[in-house]
Amino acid sequence: MIKLIECPRDAMQGIPGFIDTAIKAAYINQLLEVGFDTIDFGSFVSPKAIPQMRDTAEVLELLDLHDAKSKLLAIVANVRGAEDALQFQEIDFLGFPLSVSETFQQRNTNASIEEALKTVEAIQNLCEAKGKKQVVYLSMGFGNPYGDPYSPELVAEFVEKLSQLQVELISLSDTIGVATPDLITKLFEVQIQAFPQIEFGAHLHSRIESIPEKVLAGLKGGCKRFDGALKGFGGCPMAKDELVGNMATEVMIETLEKEGYSLGLNKSELAESMKLTKFVFNS
């Protein structure tokens, strides 16, 4: 079964003008009608770092989760953020960005990789105590622009460390859109075979024309969990000045359905969500 994770948080976080709380909530409520597996809806991080997400708790209070099929995921960058997020029973997953690149780990969370791994362990313990799950995003998982060491073997070392911490969900993340189809297939194939107890996802950034080949490459490697954002909005504001957008969800859906996958989505609600992006993002 294919799992689609819709990421309005990632789509919104780099927008310079503040999006009104009520507008954010209305958009996420509309997305909840579509039937995505999970909605990455917000983050509990420093408002100085990501000012767009400073109202995540308020947005959550405005969500209509009655009969919602989708689970909720919130990003955190430290233990304090995890503790804040875990106060809300409605949140199912906490996402933490662990980078393969030392430079990006410092830029993104103001911590070293060694310190970040300790944070992962602490968050994992908190999640287990609360009956929640942690999703670790391996940022710069397909290469980095800083000249830091990178290899598929290095990724495997990180996965091994996360496996020892009992992390069960890892999303391989192409933060700057450099992944090639061959590398995507290879990484997923090797990791999935080596760590069958872990569910691997793909959080890729891409130019629109490259999305189908990247989805197919992930499928070939055994990936069944894909992150995206409608119309490809978003990108990591901590990565580079020129943002490479998220995988456009509608393109992923078209690609997957052409491959014969039934995604169980409400297409009329999806169309309404697509219309709403023009209002939310002023596109």
Results as ranks from 00 to 15, higher is better:
T56W: 02
I123L: 04
I50G: 00
G147T: 01
G131R: 01
M53H: 00
E58P: 03
S112W: 05
L73W: 04
L165C: 12
Q166W: 11
G147E: 15
L138V: 00
E153S: 13
V155T: 00
L72T: 02
Q106M: 15
T103E: 12
Q89P: 10
N108Y: 03
R107Q: 04
V136Q: 03
V76Y: 02
S101C: 07
Q166L: 13
M53F: 01
A111W: 04
K161C: 12
E121M: 11
D64H: 02
V45H: 00
T38D: 07
M140E: 14
L72F: 09
A111K: 04
L126S: 10
L86M: 15
G131H: 04
T38N: 10
I123M: 02
H66M: 05
E160V: 02
A68F: 07
L165D: 14
Q106K: 15
F41Q: 03
F36P: 07
I113D: 09
I75N: 07
N125H: 14
N125K: 15
P97A: 05
K161Q: 14
A122S: 14
F142A: 10
I50V: 00
L165Q: 15
K161F: 08
F36A: 03
P51C: 06
I50E: 02
A49R: 00
Q52W: 01
Q89D: 15
N78C: 08
L165R: 06
K69H: 13
K48C: 04
I50P: 00
E61N: 13
E160Q: 13
L94W: 01
E128C: 08
E157P: 10
Q134I: 15
V155E: 08
V34I: 08
E90G: 03
N110P: 10
F41P: 08
V100I: 07
F104P: 09
A129S: 15
S99P: 11
A26E: 14
V76H: 02
N29W: 10
K161W: 05
A49Q: 03
D37P: 06
K48V: 07
S70V: 07
P97S: 07
Q30M: 11
G147S: 06
V100M: 09
G35L: 12
G147R: 00
F36M: 03
R107W: 02
K48S: 11
D37K: 04
P97G: 06
A85P: 11
G42A: 11
S46N: 01
M53G: 04
L32P: 09
